[in-house]
């Protein structure tokens, strides 16, 4: 059973690593499906993580931390909207700007407020979202396989992990079963059709960006209050970009997004696990190769060698009424 335990352990860490990717990728899905490209996921997640860490450190409440994270991430989302929806600026440029603003200001403000070199103070258990034991997890852990899966893999994660995975069917439902979702998909493909149907294109896209803000805030909160005990500078470490890659990899669809994030998370967890050990057939893989693999896979996908990733048609183009 040693192999099985290793596998469960590996999958367990896959889940932990995947969650911030999943939240950020779902966040990006709302924005990009509405026709607003968002390479600022990284910055919003980082801003959210900082706000969560700072607010939780000051108040001792993870819920206030979460609220602060969502508020900051939504604010950054609205800045993106102001530039790219209201003023029809370049969406890529705006996203890049937000990433820098977040990267710089989290360190500056962190240093100014807490004087710990850009960190927020270490949080105690009460200020974090800790592990939740699902019912009977303890008593079932001795049951072979099923029990082990239940208690070690499914149980024992923080609340945000469960929320993240519930958000997958929820997002699907919103997108394909609600009025908002119908309009969101429409505005990402043909904003003029939405406009002439009497729906405000700008307000619809702003609402999509608010959803993006909320989810990136949640992702940041997970990093600062669940995976770690406080904010550390640059703690997103490129996850926003991997999430973007996962979103493209999944062709902007909610359920495939989950699998893409789990895949990328698995690669990450696997890389850590096999560090320094030789694999059968492959020999010893450099850890850097494993780290680069999500990016390499995404490039191969973008190249069209494994199916075509076709973005929403109106993506990246500011909406101007036809003259």
């Amino acid at each position: 059973m040693d192999f099985f335990s290793t596998l469960v352990f590996l999958l367990d860490s896959t889940i932990r690593v995947s969650v911030p990717l999943l939240l950020a990728a779902l966040a990006g899905l709302y924005s990009e499906r509405s026709g607003v490209f968002d390479i600022g996921l990284e910055g919003k997640m980082l801003g959210g993580a900082f706000a969560a860490g700072a607010a939780a450190a000051v108040t001792g409440s993870p819920w206030i931390g979460l609220s602060a994270a969502v508020a900051i991430a939504v604010f950054l989302s609205l800045v993106h909207g102001f530039a790219s929806i209201t003023h029809r600026g370049n969406q890529i440029v705006s996203g890049v700007a937000i990433n820098f603003i977040a990267a710089g200001s989290t360190i500056i403000l962190g240093q100014a407020w807490f004087s710990q070199g850009g960190r927020t103070p270490l949080l105690g258990g009460d200020a974090r979202f800790g592990a939740i034991q699902l019912p009977f997890a303890g008593s079932l852990s001795d049951v072979p396989i099923i029990g082990e899966l239940y208690s070690d893999l499914l149980s024992g994660h923080s609340l945000i992990v469960y929320i993240a995975f519930l958000l997958v069917p929820f997002t699907w439902w919103v997108l394909f079963r609600t009025r908002f979702g119908l309009r969101l998909r429409a505005v990402g493909e043909n904003p003029a059709a939405v406009d002439t149907a009497g729906i405000s294109v700008a307000w619809l896209r702003y609402r999509a960006l608010i959803c993006t803000g909320i989810l990136t805030g949640l992702a940041g909160t997970y990093l600062a209050l669940s995976q770690n005990a406080g904010f550390v500078k640059d703690m997103t470490a490129g996850r926003g970009y991997i999430a973007l890659a996962a979103l493209i990899f999944a062709k902007w669809r909610p359920v495939p997004v989950m699998f893409a994030c789990l895949l990328f998370g698995f690669l990450d967890a696997f890389a850590i696990r096999i560090q320094g050990t030789a694999l059968p057939l492959l020999g010893q893989l450099p850890v850097q190769f494993m780290q680069a693999l999500p990016y390499i896979l995404t490039v191969i996908l973008l190249a069209g060698f494994i199916g075509r990733a076709e973005p929403p048609r109106a993506g990246g183009i500011p909406y101007v009424k036809e003259r």
Partner: peptide, 26 residues
Amino acid sequence: MPGISRDMIVIIQGLVILFAGALENL
């Protein structure tokens, strides 16, 4: 000013990109 590290530049960089780039028509 110990409160201000070099990361201030990153903020300025971001703000320049925002205002000179994305919001150039403001």
